[in-house]
């Protein structure tokens, strides 16, 4: 039950309020927090909808910087946005919802049916995070995922994606409006330290994860569908279960063939 709504006027104010109230939550686009069945339980909501500094999309060196309160539709309409990220934003089927949902909100939610995570992981996106003191730090999106408990109170202020990454993403869902069973992305990004190839998946009810074993193997040689399936079976994070989205065999098979298809597109230069 929400008993306090604060309209923050600045990012610093929002981060400070959040840091000082453990029963609070940031309110971004509202498409999740105000939605039926939302799992977010907060007494105080800190609305960041009016914080101007969280808006806007700009270019800086080899990166595109996206304010965390940019909506999916803002990102689609911006001429600066890389095509691969526009494609991921278009996975949200409802235009009306795209007018509301924000990139920062989607990242903070870490839903396993996320529209964006696979793409952001595959391109090695980075996040600018602000703490209650107003100090900012930069983390890669993968780090944010893994250290979420440590970082969760920080305000995502900006998302940094590479201009020149090649990313191919595919989303599978019953209907466009349904939750995705799988969203798979394969990317070649200049921001990787070891390997330029990144493979990531958002697997409903299972995991948001990078598939480094597979990408490292595929750096060496192209794998068959069967080899990828074998690798996936050994993956400890991807313990697929049978649910309304399908059987584990289906999900594993679909993931494997999609990785291969996207890999060929990326390496074939369609990214």
């Amino acid at each position: 039950m929400v008993d306090n709504l604060i309209l923050a006027q600045s990012a610093k104010e929002a981060a400070r309020l959040k840091g000082s109230n453990n029963k609070s939550a940031y309110l971004a686009g509202g498409t999740e927090i105000n939605r039926l069945g939302s799992t977010i339980n907060a007494r105080t909501l800190i609305s960041i909808g009016r914080v101007k500094e969280l808006d806007g999309i700009r270019e800086e060196d080899d990166a595109i910087l996206i304010g965390s309160m940019c909506t999916f539709q803002d990102i689609i309409e911006s001429p600066l946005t890389p095509a691969y990220l526009k494609e991921a934003c278009l996975f949200m089927g409802s235009r009306t919802k795209r007018n509301m949902a924000t990139i920062g909100g989607n990242i903070a939610l870490r839903r396993t049916d996320s529209y964006l995570y696979a793409t952001l992981l595959a391109c090695a996106a980075k996040l600018t995070l602000m703490g209650k003191s107003g100090k900012t730090e930069t983390r890669c999106v993968c780090c944010y995922l893994h250290k979420y408990e440590e970082l969760k109170d920080l305000l995502i202020t900006e998302i940094r994606v590479p201009k020149d990454a090649k990313v191919q993403t595919k989303r599978y869902s019953n209907t466009v409006q349904s939750h995705a069973v799988l969203t798979v992305a394969v990317g070649e990004t200049p921001w990787c330290e070891k390997s330029s190839l990144r493979i990531a998946v958002a697997a409903k009810n299972t995991a948001l994860t990078r598939l480094d074993d597979i990408s490292e193997a595929m750096e060496q040689k192209e794998l068959t569908d069967e080899e990828i399936i074998k690798n996936l079976k050994a993956n400890k994070e991807l313990k697929f279960k049978s649910d309304i989205y399908g059987s584990p065999e289906y999900k594993r098979y679909l993931l494997a063939v999609t990785i291969n298809d996207l890999y060929r597109k990326v390496r074939g230069g369609q990214g």
Binding site: L5, L27, G29, G30, N34, S47, G49, T96, M100
Partner: peptide, 9 residues
Amino acid sequence: YANLVLAGE
């Protein structure tokens, strides 16, 4: 969607 917007906003 008006149901996903808080009136205070």
